[in-house]
């Protein structure tokens, strides 16, 4: 499956990046292809392009704050979870997607 994701936390110093690393790693074990955009203290990095989003079957928002540029995801199935879930049990997120 092709997945896009966005991570964002209130201070944007640590958890945004931890969650991104975690999602990337676990997605691989599920055999998914994932691209994770981080919205942290350095601004938006690894930005999802229009074609990234168009080609994805699903978008995951692992966020504690509002996602910047939400309108980009119009027409894509989005599931939003608290960022902590991406740290705690990313497996559960992917299991949910497959169902």
């Amino acid at each position: 499956m092709r997945i896009v994701a966005v991570t964002a936390c209130p201070t944007g110093i640590a958890h945004t990046y931890m969650a991104a690393a975690r999602l990337e790693k676990v997605a691989k074990t599920f055999g998914h292809e994932i691209k994770v955009e981080t919205q942290g203290a350095m601004g938006i990095e690894n930005k999802l392009t229009e074609s990234d989003i168009r080609q994805a079957q699903i978008a995951i928002f692992a966020v504690d704050i509002e996602v910047e540029g939400k309108e980009r995801f119009h027409g894509v199935k989005v599931i939003q979870v608290p960022l902590q879930d991406a740290l705690k049990s990313p497996e559960a997120i992917f299991a949910k997607i497959q169902r």
Binding site: I13, A14, Y17, M18, A21, G40, A41, M42
Partner: peptide, 18 residues
């Protein structure tokens, strides 16, 4: 302007997942 250090912090955050 914490850009340089933020780069280090984000790398550290990612590595901590390893």
């Amino acid at each position: 302007d914490g850009a340089n250090h933020m780069q280090v912090f984000s790398t550290l955050a990612r590595k901590l997942m390893n």
